[in-house]
């Protein structure tokens, strides 16, 4: 069972690498913010898996909870930064479809 948790941790870490590609290449700043948010979520899961390996989940679960809260607040603050960049809000190049009721 311990080997299974080690493999899970390695797999989660390997899945961070494609998202790292999006951080490095990502065309705009907000793509990078989304990718950082996803890596934060994976880090939270990884903390709990590390806690299972060290047999100290009661300690690591608090770290994971704090990390989840900080990740949420951080993404909200970063989204708030873009709030008034484009005030007239012309939504790109797509027609909107109304609901016929």
């Amino acid at each position: 069972m311990e080997n299974f948790f080690i493999l899970t941790g390695v797999a989660i870490f390997a899945l961070m690498l494609p998202i790292l590609y999006r951080i490095i290449v990502g065309p705009t700043a907000i793509d990078r913010i989304v990718a950082v948010n996803m890596i934060g979520t994976k880090t939270m899961v990884l903390l709990i898996i590390i806690g299972m390996l060290f047999k100290r989940v009661d300690m690591f679960v608090d770290f994971a909870l704090t990390y989840a809260l900080l990740n949420f607040i951080g993404s909200l603050a970063a989204a708030r930064f873009f709030d008034r960049v484009n005030p007239d809000k012309q939504i790109a190049n797509l027609e909107t479809k109304e609901q016929e009721s």
Partner: peptide, 23 residues
């Protein structure tokens, strides 16, 4: 907490993308 915070941060980020004028 993740099931509540995930959709909320998704709204915030996609609203930021709309405001920034993403194509």
């Amino acid at each position: 907490f993740i099931m509540w915070a995930g959709p909320t941060s998704t709204h915030a980020l996609i609203k930021a993308g709309i405001d920034e004028g993403q194509k």
